[in-house]
Design a protein around this nucleic acid. Structure first.
Lengths: 344, 344
DNA sequence: CTGTTAGCGCCTTCAA
DNA sequence: TTGAAGGCGCTAACAG
């Protein structure tokens, strides 16, 4: 660590400016600008060559900030996620980045840590970049005290020509790439009933996240004649482990299947069950949501609901600034070994 | 999808400028600048209040680009990763973002897709942001034809006051947060020999990635008196699956343990073994590298080498622009169920 | 097709 | 302490 390399080039000088390359090439600033960054290229070939030569000789890179001020529009898009290390968000980020790069845009990522206040603070900050678009990928919150502030901030952004795209629940007055939380949960519940399951528990995640709430409510709502225990907690693997442990301590009576509202929690729950020596799916079955990559690699492979997260990320930037994107596949139940058919 | 919400505020106007708030507050531009963004605040309290009031009333957000041009320095750091959806890189990104936010900086992320040319292209592009630092997290390449170009680009950046930090192999003339690929592989090999393993295969990943090469060579080098089969491929789960399949097709004779040079591949290999009905660790043991979260959730739990990737990300920005960071823990072998002690 | 010249939004001497 | 004014690097009319 701390390998502070000593470099020869001790003297640091300012980066070459357009003016420098213009002078070097013996042309005017405007001409240099035109050949290097201008749109309609109507420049003498020889001049153009000289400018290019000078530019590469000087190692010139256009100052994007200066371009942004002059043009009145920057070339980046801002992405807010709850937690970039979470596969749900890193998949979305991959999609956003791919689509943005395709449009020649650069992506700035900030992490909200699932805090409404932090989210607001960050859009305020990122607004300063005058990005072409702001994409909010995190879940909305059930507590809407901060909602108005966020909307106001976003409205101001839109009012000055910015574009906003949300990924998730369509409940803010901005373009949204919907993530189907309710429908998928309902389908999952139906599929599980069809498989013979009758007693359920839900690891519901944080009560203040709409994503979690929607999945929980839709699941429970689709099972009107079945008992469903609900345990709240965090959205993480550790929380899934804890919630499952609590459930085990409470006895597990009547529970044939545990639905964790995301795969990360489901994996934590499976670990808890394993540590307690409880057989999955022999004693209890487990299901998750999202279909993250790990879902098919755990044993038994995890039944879940597939979401096309990368596509959602791409769609968000397409929605905000145009460009191609695939039609979003609907949420689909993926039945795997963690929920075998039950023969009562 | 494509929920194009119609908003009331049809007229889009330009964002309020510092000049606007100054006028609104009845003070000069300079004064407004001082109270809002200036360093040494030596401003009449009443003026200050008026400015703040005007700013929030107008919804003013300082134009970061303009600040950057005027100040000659921006407030962001650029991060290049191979693939943001890969847990190795999303962990690093989490660390980089955390550290950067702590310093009031914003992180721009670009994806190189493990292409040397793309990497160069991206640093060239991102240099245009005049970021405070550029962090390169992807592996270096064995083919050094592009190396000089990259170094030149980075050198130019440093020559103009930029900071560069690499994460990975310390083989470019810039500050580097080392990732211990060789040492960990060696420790792993020793631990495995100690457990009784005698015949090995390595899923070596891409031949042109130094990270992959170092892990492979160190592992092989630590086992001078043992046969080691090496299979090259990609760095992905799918590639791990394929490479393992090839190995199975080839017979698997004499192979007691398969070392995949990263966990993602190892997980793919385990899937291949499972699909072929080959028992792990009964018939072959498996080990990986990185200790991604999934490693402990597969069955059997995967033996691997732990790297503190988030810490590495934080350390990189600390190295580049200062700030606190934890001492990096050395690579550590984590023995799990996929490599039980062998009783020949 | 080329060059001149205002700006873009902000910071920062420099006087007052 | 405050304001006026020049400048940061670049773009985009506007003449030539």
């Amino acid at each position: 660590m701390r390998v502070l390399k000593s470099r020869l080039k001790l003297v640091i000088e300012n980066p070459p400016t357009l003016y420098d390359v213009a002078r070097e090439a013996g042309v005017s600033l405007a001409t240099a600008s035109r050949v290097l960054n201008g749109s309609t290229r109507t420049v003498n070939e020889e001049f153009a060559e000289r400018v290019h030569a000078a530019a590469s000789q000087l190692g010139y890179t256009p100052n994007l900030s200066a371009q942004a001020v002059a043009r009145g529009a920057s070339s980046n898009v801002a992405l807010l996620v709850s937690d970039i290390a979470d596969p749900y968000f890193s998949s979305i980020a991959a999609g956003v980045i791919r689509a943005a790069e395709r449009e020649g845009l650069v992506v700035t990522i900030a992490v909200t840590d699932r805090k409404a206040a932090r989210e607001i603070q960050l859009v305020k900050l990122l607004r300063g970049q005058r990005p072409r678009a702001i994409v909010l990928a995190g879940s909305r919150f059930t507590d809407d005290s901060d909602r108005a502030t966020l909307v106001a901030e976003l409205d101001a952004f839109v009012g000055t020509g910015g574009r906003v795209a949300l990924i998730g629940q369509d409940e803010l007055p901005f373009d949204t790439v919907p993530i189907d939380n309710s429908g998928g949960s309902r389908l999952l519940a139906q599929a599980l009933v069809e498989l013979g399951y009758r007693g359920f528990a839900v690891l519901a995640g944080p009560a203040d996240l709409i994503t979690a709430r929607d999945r929980t409510e839709a699941f429970v709502g689709a099972l009107p004649q079945h008992p469903v225990a609900v345990v709240y907690g965090d959205f993480s693997r550790a929380a899934g482990y804890e919630a499952m442990s609590a459930l085990i301590d409470a006895g597990l009576e009547g529970i044939e299947l545990v639905f964790a509202v995301n795969d990360v929690m489901a994996v934590g729950a499976m670990a808890a069950l394993r540590d307690r020596g409880i057989d999955v799916p022999g004693r209890v079955a487990v299901a998750g949501y999202d279909d993250v990559s790990t879902a098919r690699d755990v044993t038994p492979a995890l039944t879940t609901v597939r979401l096309e997260l990368e596509d959602a990320g791409e769609a968000a930037v397409a929605l905000a600034i145009g460009g191609p994107h695939r039609q979003l596949a609907p949420a689909a139940v993926v039945l795997r070994d963690s929920t075998p058919r039950l023969s009562h």
